[in-house]
Each structure stands twice: as structure tokens, then as C-alpha cells.
């Protein structure tokens, strides 16, 4: 399978934080959810992919090309939403259209205006008067309107209400109907991802904890809820993390089927990404 994005052994050091040996691939035609708690390294990884952050070691390839040597060519085909970026408040969406026409060769004004209509965004109102959710939708419309092949989105649904989130997710799904297009989607609202992401990559403290297909993750992984006696019978190598609650133990297992065979425990709950994140980060080994 051809990859839109390949990251190999990416490392970047700061005084108080480091990305360490980050590696994952995003195949063409897929959506990858990039999850982790705040400060885990999601934004730094995204900024490194986009060359906003430089001086790193490792290799980043986008559309099979080295991202540093082919920066200009690659960026014609990437649409971006950054978490901490805002359009100048005194501009209007129509100004954005005029500006982007002078930035991207493939900028499509009519497509941009279609998105403005679809998102019910007023084209002549200054951005300052738009709500946070409308601002986010404007960023998404801008990221999509030059026919990119890869969307890199840092918290694109933050600030959106559930209805707006559903609208945006639907647009992302439409976007990847073209098999050449892919999305890297960082978020901490993991419920958005369970329905749309083909892959989940989980980062914590600058390290990748796992990168798997969503199906594999949600089908194979599970949470065993048991009492203290049963927990003590479980071999430490058969679970990833556990958490002691008031009445029971919650144990994260990597392979539900093998676990049930070995321990004859029938009740294994299906995992949600939220539970996975909490157990992986807060659970004990």
C-alpha cells in the first residue's frame, strides 16, 4: 500500500521535552487519528512534519518525497489546520479567498464559496465577529479549497458543537472518497475518531505507544473487569496496564481472544479510545 506520509525515527529535543524515535505511516485513502493528552507531542510532531519546527533527526516523507528537500512542491498539495493559529481578525472570508488565490496554484474560489455556503459562513463579515466554531469552519474550508491530497489537522473539531462536528466529519469522509487523499487528524475528542479513523496513532510524552488500524485496536484490545483475587491470578506479561477502582480492577489486555482462552474470564468489555488513553497514561504496569 502506498503511503501519503511516512515518518521514520523522528527525534527532536527541547530543554524540557523531546520527541523520541517517532515512526508511523499513513497510507493513501485513509484517515489517521493522532491521539494523546495535551502536551504529549501531537502539535510538535505536526509542526515538524510541516517544517515549522526544524533541526530534527530522522526522516519524513510526504507523497514519497523528502519533506525538507521538496517543501514547496509538497505544500501545494497539503491542507492544514493548526490548533494555535487564527486568521487576522479584521479580514473577511472574502479577503481570505483573494489572499489564497495568490498563494496556491490550485486555489478554487468556487469550491471555497461552496464550503462557506455549506458551513453557513457569512462571506463579508469580519472574522472578529465570527464565533469560535465558525472560525474553525473557515479554517477547514480554507484547508480544503485548493484540492489538497493530504489534510494535516491539529484539533480541527475543538470549539465545535456536536452538530458542527458531525458536519465537519462528514466533509472529511467525502474528502477521502478520492483514494489518493488522506487525513492526519490530531484530537483529544476521541469519540470523533471511532467512527471515521482507519488508523489510530497514540503518542505520550513524546513517544509513540501504538499505531494500529482502528478495527484491530477496538476488536483485539479489551478491558477486563475483575476482583482482586482474579487480578492476582493474571500473569503480568498478559496485560498492558491496570487501574484499581473502588470496587474492581480494570485491566487492559492486548488480545481479548487469547486472554479469555487462557484465564476463562468471559466478561471483557469492548474498548473505547477514551478508556484506552486513560489506562495507557494513568494505569499501572
Amino acid at each position: 500500500m502506498e503511503n501519503s506520509l511516512e515518518i521514520k525515527k523522528l527525534s527532536k529535543k527541547y530543554d524540557n521535552f523531546a520527541l523520541e524515535n517517532i515512526s508511523f505511516n499513513l497510507p493513501k485513502g485513509m484517515i489517521m487519528g493522532f491521539i494523546g493528552e495535551n502536551g504529549a507531542g501531537k502539535t510538535t510532531t505536526i509542526k515538524t512534519i510541516l517544517n515549522i519546527v526544524q533541526d530534527y533527526t530522522g526522516e519524513i516523507k510526504i507523497f514519497g518525497l523528502d519533506n525538507r528537500q521538496n517543501d514547496k512542491k509538497i505544500k501545494e498539495d497539503i491542507g492544514v489546520v493548526l490548533d494555535d493559529m487564527f486568521f487576522p481578525e479584521i479580514l473577511t472570508p472574502l479577503d481570505i479567498d483573494k489572499i489564497m488565490r495568490g498563494i496556491y496554484k490550485n486555489w478554487d474560489s468556487s469550491l471555497f464559496k461552496n464550503y462557506l455556503n455549506e458551513f453557513k459562513l457569512p462571506s463579508k463579515k469580519i472574522i472578529k465577529t465570527l464565533s469560535k466554531g465558525m472560525h474553525k469552519k473557515l479554517e477547514i474550508a480554507t484547508a480544503l479549497a485548493h484540492h489538497p491530497k493530504l489534510l494535516i489537522l491539529d484539533e480541527p473539531t475543538s470549539g465545535l458543537d456536536p452538530v458542527a462536528r458531525a458536519e465537519v466529519i462528514e466533509i472529511f469522509q467525502r474528502f477521502i472518497e478520492n483514494a489518493d487523499c488522506s487525513i492526519l487528524f490530531s484530537t483529544h475528542i476521541t469519540t470523533d475518531l471511532e467512527h471515521v479513523a482507519d488508523y489510530i496513532t497514540f503518542i505520550d510524552e513524546g513517544k509513540i505507544l501504538l499505531s494500529k488500524t482502528t478495527e484491530e485496536l477496538l476488536e483485539q484490545y479489551g478491558i477486563v473487569k475483575c476482583n482482586k483475587d482474579d487480578f492476582q491470578k493474571i500473569d503480568a506479561k498478559d496485560y498492558l496496564k491496570y487501574k484499581k477502582t473502588k470496587y474492581a480492577y480494570e485491566v487492559l489486555v492486548e488480545n481479548k481472544k487469547e486472554f479469555t482462552k487462557k484465564y476463562n474470564i468471559k466478561v471483557i468489555d469492548k474498548l473505547t479510545l477514551d478508556e484506552l488513553m486513560v489506562l495507557m497514561i494513568k494505569g499501572e504496569e
Binding site: K47, V80, P88, I103, I152
Partner: peptide, 21 residues
Amino acid sequence: SYDNYNNWDAYAITFPDGRKN
């Protein structure tokens, strides 16, 4: 000052030849 306030410079790097332009 506006660019700095809006974090525009980081966003501009995501454009083709963003730093130079």
C-alpha cells in the same frame, strides 16, 4: 504585530515557499 498576535507566521510556513514569500 498583527502577524505575531494571530500566529500567522507559523501558518504561513504551511504555504508553498511560505518562509521566503
